[in-house]
């Protein structure tokens, strides 16, 4: 009945969720789907926890993803994936960047950052891709394309979007001089081990 595909992107304000969301939405549009997205603007952007939501299919109504519905949950920071874990469907895929960003609540001593985050991630997600996208991006020459590396890993789960369509979307969304870099970043991410 519900053939809508839903994706949740999580991270910390300023990490580049917006670009990832834009590429994904463009790709879905090029593939001929109806698309809706929702992004966080304003107050929550100042280093707070943020999510972006994308839904596509034949006809999409709500721009918001329901709990337990997402095909993929992608997180640019390791524990942010846990914050939004309940959006993921039981056989959904979690793509998680191993980066750690310590919240001020932890530095000021009023909260604790889970030490065994990787273990918790493994327990929480049946299908998990856990990778150091920042390192991969750095090796490709620009740490800023970590989000596109992750997008590549995410793309493996979205069979209705072909590599050609992804490439076309990347071309439209990034500045000309960064196109090649981002396409390589995407392809590298797509080759990341599908499970750890």
């Amino acid at each position: 009945m519900n053939k809508t595909t839903s994706i949740v992107l999580a991270g910390v304000g300023g990490q580049g969720i917006l670009l990832a969301s834009e590429i994904l939405a463009k790709a879905a549009g090029f593939a001929g789907f109806d698309v809706k997205t929702n992004e966080v603007h304003g107050m929550a952007q100042r280093g707070g926890s943020v999510i972006g939501q994308i839904r596509y299919g034949e006809k999409v109504f709500s721009p918001l993803v329901s709990k337990g519905e997402a095909t993929v949950l992608m997180s640019l920071e390791r524990i942010e994936a846990l914050r939004y874990a309940d959006f993921l469907s039981p056989d959904g895929l979690a793509v998680v960047n191993s980066q750690v960003i310590i919240p001020t609540t932890v530095s000021s001593g009023s909260a604790v950052y889970p030490e065994n985050a990787k273990e918790i991630l493994k327990q929480s997600f049946k299908h998990l891709v856990y990778l150091d996208a920042n390192r991969i991006a750095q090796e490709l020459g620009n740490p800023k394309c970590a989000n596109v590396v992750l997008l590549g890993a995410l793309s493996t789960k979205l069979e209705n979007l072909t590599p050609e369509i992804w490439e076309q979307a990347i071309r439209e969304c990034v500045k000309p001089k960064f196109i090649d870099l981002n396409i390589t970043a995407f392809q590298t991410g797509a080759k990341a081990p599908s499970e750890l």
Binding site: V12, G68, I79, A85, P103, I120
Partner: peptide, 22 residues
Amino acid sequence: QPCASCQNMADAPLPNRPPTLC
């Protein structure tokens, strides 16, 4: 039944991450 099908959230308490002054 809120999201009966979705995966159990991790039990570990997560630190809040409110927006902050840059």
